[in-house]
Amino acid sequence: MDEMVVLLIPLLGTTLGAAMVFFMKDNINAKIEKTLLGFAAGVMIAASVWSLLIPAIDMSKEQGRIAWLPAAVGFMLGILFLLLIDSIVPHLHLDSDKPEGVKSKFSKTTMMMFAVTIHNIPEGMAVGVAYAGAIMGHSKLSLTAAVALSIGIAIQNFPEGAIISMPLKGQGMSKMRAFKCGFLSGVVEPIGAFITILLTSKIIVILPYLLAFAAGAMIYVVIEELIPESQSGEHTNIGTIGAAIGFVLMMVLDVALG
């Protein structure tokens, strides 16, 4: 499969989700939104384990290293990287009126887009590093596994695209502009994936670290954003159910296609 097609699959999910703004009259129901957020969390957790951490550990064994060391170091660096970005970049989470990051004069819409963009950075890295390992012919990373990861992220990007575009429309933004904002929030993924491929192809030895780095960054997003938002407001287990479904779906995709 062509390299750019693999890298653009996740963006397709975001684009289709953002396009829901043209077909849905009202904002997403709160329970549905929590289900979708939980689903996204489940997909990202499973992808972090099966598509990134386990290959990183197996790869380290093959290279004669301490199996857990690159995975542990890379994972923590990924957490710290997202923590740093989260602390610096001004952004505003959905259903929140308190911006995070450094003080700025950016509009509310811009900061909401920044929040989703931060979320999408590790997903792009994950696809990029998985694909890089596949094209380098590493036994622990096949092209089908990279495609499975892209498809899994695209599936969870679909609701995310809708979750960003629908509230913007509800705040009075035109449908086309809300769609563009949803689409642009996902553009960082193929860009991040391509940069990661270039970096990995130059320094093959760091591949296990980059796999774990992407996993750490994804888990940061899950813990910092997706799980709290899926459990906010009135108590319900719907977000947990969504997470379970997302986890199983991504696990099946990785094992069946990988």
Rank of each mutant, 00 (worst) to 15 (best):
E3S: 14
L7R: 12
I9V: 13
A19T: 03
K25E: 09
I28F: 05
E33C: 05
K34R: 13
T35G: 13
F39G: 15
F39K: 15
A40Y: 08
V43R: 04
S51G: 12
L53N: 08
M59F: 00
K61N: 09
E62D: 08
I66G: 13
A67N: 14
A67V: 14
W68V: 13
P70Q: 13
A71T: 10
G74Q: 14
M76A: 12
L77Q: 10
L80D: 03
L80H: 03
L83R: 11
D86G: 03
D86M: 05
I88L: 14
H93S: 06
S96A: 11
K98N: 10
E100W: 04
K103D: 09
K108T: 12
M113Y: 02
F114L: 13
A115Q: 05
A115H: 06
H119I: 07
I121A: 04
E123S: 01
V127K: 03
G128W: 00
A130N: 09
H138D: 00
K140L: 00
V147I: 15
L149S: 09
G152Q: 07
A154P: 00
F158I: 15
E160G: 02
S165C: 01
K169T: 00
K169V: 00
G170F: 03
G170Q: 05
M173P: 02
K175F: 01
R177Y: 01
F179I: 02
F183N: 02
L184V: 01
S185L: 13
P190A: 11
G192M: 12
L198M: 15
L199Q: 06
S201E: 08
I204V: 09
Y209S: 11
L210F: 10
F213I: 06
A215V: 01
V221Q: 10
V221G: 11
E224I: 06
E224P: 06
I227E: 08
I227Y: 10
S232H: 10
H235L: 11
V248N: 10
M250S: 10
V255F: 12
V255P: 02
L257K: 14
